[in-house]
């Protein structure tokens, strides 16, 4: 640590912003804030608080919540298993077509999830490219199963993980890996014992983002896995379904999702996202 013996310089006030914020900026900013928060306030305003405990313990709600948490967690693990090596490849290995691969990885980010669901059906459906073979060879059917939900969620959420981890890997000092090599560590040991701990914060942030995205997944799930209570009906699907019959139930389900999302966001901010 550098130590200075010179007296502290007189405190300089940060330059004060000029008084008067232009209306052309203030008005849209305020409207934007309203747009983002008003729906949440509306949700809270319409929540049947008195009825809440009973509604929360309704078997349908718990089943959907449990299924959502389970599938989002499995999808995240699946993404970690495949996405981290993919991110490593993109960050550390020069190969022809790397830019193309990176572009392909980000496609699910911009693709409407419903289209993703249709695409998954075309590949893993009973008559799909791989689906028929999987069914005939292993007896595995993915569409309209819980595994299908996991697959749909992973398809949509994996880019979040890959991008976060690739960024962390690029930011990590590769000379630590060289130091590991001079101590006799092969590439795999270096990856597991040095690289992964070094990028752990980025890895965790990516996993949380991935999990949150999987938790909220709707379009690809309903297209590819359908809407069977207890099997493929996750929370977002339950909200949508409830909206057609029982508005209050939809509000309660939405409140739960909102609570989980805000909790995740808070955890993320505290631990991994440094805001100025």
């Amino acid at each position: 640590m550098p130590r200075t013996d010179t007296p502290a310089p007189p405190r300089v006030r940060p330059p004060r912003p000029r008084p008067g914020i232009p209306v052309g900026l203030l008005l849209p900013a305020a409207l934007g804030l309203v747009l983002l928060t008003l729906p949440l306030i509306g949700l809270l305003a319409r929540t049947p608080w008195a009825d809440l405990p009973r509604r929360l313990t309704e078997p349908g709600v718990l089943t959907a919540l449990r299924l959502s948490l389970l599938t989002a967690t499995l999808a995240t693990l699946f993404c970690l298993l495949l996405g981290v090596p993919l991110a490593w490849l993109l960050a550390r290995v020069r190969f022809p077509g790397r830019r193309l691969v990176r572009a392909l990885v980000t496609v699910p980010l911009v693709l409407p999830p419903v289209v993703g669901g249709v695409a998954l059906l075309l590949v893993f459906g009973r008559r799909g490219l791989l689906g028929g073979w999987l069914d005939a060879t292993f007896g595995i059917t993915l569409p309209f199963t819980t595994a299908g939900v996991v697959l749909a969620e992973a398809f949509v959420a994996m880019p979040f993980l890959v991008i976060a981890v690739e960024g962390a890997l690029r930011g990590a000092d590769q000379r630590y890996e060289e130091a590991a090599a001079t101590l006799g560590a092969g590439r795999w040991t270096t990856f597991t014992h040095v690289t992964v701990p070094l990028v752990a914060p980025g890895l965790a942030a990516g996993a949380v983002l991935c999990w949150a995205r999987a938790l909220g997944e709707f379009g690809a799930t309903i297209t590819f896995a359908g809407n069977y209570p207890g099997r493929t009906q996750t929370m977002p699907l339950a909200v949508y379904l409830a909206l057609e019959t029982d508005l209050e139930a939809a509000v309660v389900l939405s409140l739960i999702l909102l609570t989980v999302s805000v909790a995740i966001l808070a955890a993320l901010r505290d631990r991994w996202i440094t805001s100025p």
Partner: peptide, 20 residues
């Protein structure tokens, strides 16, 4: 011979001790 199989030790300029 790859680095990890050489009987060579290195002290790097900024040491590169594993921070974790």
């Amino acid at each position: 011979t790859p680095t990890e199989r050489r009987p060579v030790g290195v002290v790097f300029q900024d040491y590169l001790l594993f921070p974790h």
